[in-house]
């Protein structure tokens, strides 16, 4: 069977899988960004309870595997009375996992904003919240954008695991088609190429645009 014939028969299924993958990616990315900000700031908090919670979250999610977290959230959490539909369990797991890595990027970026910026904002009598929001965070975002680009590609790759709890994403469709046709090279090969295109021609250029916009805000471009 030529690739052309293959695509005519299975193209629609791969396309619907790609759409689900994109949806998982966007939703997981939103969770990851929010959680990373909260935990990254939390790890720098004066309050030991907030700091402790953030550290425990970060260490648990970075210290175990995404697959373990996914199975735990999907199969074990219902025993605690929290039952998530598989689609939700999927992007929540991926988001929480990547968020723990993102939290370290947030913390590192905040800490690498020069101390003089804190002092200048302090000398203007700004409140701690305003110092963070108006002076430190905007600069920290510029510092952490490049590593976030890599992290978002890891996140895209992570979404492939949701197929293992039967979310019908790209990976899932490739697996299903392979199981019924044994056309493995085509099924998995095309899926690999689609993931590559998403990463290389959508996520990476988007992040580059963000970096350039950020550089303009700093008057550097």
């Amino acid at each position: 069977m030529s690739i052309w014939e293959y695509m005519q028969i299975y193209g629609a299924r791969l396309a619907s899988g790609t759409a689900i993958t994109c949806a998982q990616f966007v939703l997981a990315a939103l969770i990851a960004i929010v959680v990373a900000l909260l935990a990254g700031l939390g790890k720098l908090s004066q309050n030991w309870l907030i700091r402790g919670t953030s550290v425990v979250y970060i260490e648990i999610f970075r210290g175990t595997s995404l697959l373990v977290q996914l199975y735990w959230i999907f199969f074990v959490l219902p025993l605690f009375g929290i039952t998530l539909p598989k689609f939700v369990a999927g992007f929540v797991s991926v988001g929480l996992n990547v968020g723990s890595y993102g939290a370290e990027l947030v913390r590192g970026a905040i800490q690498s904003v020069p101390k003089g910026q804190w002092e200048a904002a302090y000398a203007l009598s700004m409140s701690p919240a305003k110092r963070m929001r108006r002076i430190i965070l905007p600069q920290a975002i510029g510092i952490m954008l490049p590593p976030w680009g890599n992290l978002l590609i890891e996140l895209l790759k992570g979404t492939a695991l949701v197929s293992l709890i039967s979310v019908a994403d790209l990976m899932f469709q490739a697996k299903q088609i392979n199981a019924s046709t044994f056309l493995s090279a085509q099924s998995f090969g095309i899926a690999l190429v689609i993931y590559y295109i998403l990463a290389r021609f959508f996520i990476t250029p988007f992040m580059r645009r963000m970096e350039r916009a950020m550089a303009r805000r700093l008057g550097k471009a």
Binding site: I153, F182, A185, A191, Y195
Partner: peptide
């Protein structure tokens, strides 16, 4: 670049299943 931007789990399937096809 290709290896780094595609999912490991998919690569595992690929290596495992493509061999037998040939």
């Amino acid at each position: 670049e290709f290896i780094r931007s595609t999912p490991l789990v998919l690569q595992i399937f690929f290596v495992f299943y493509v061999g037998p096809q040939f």
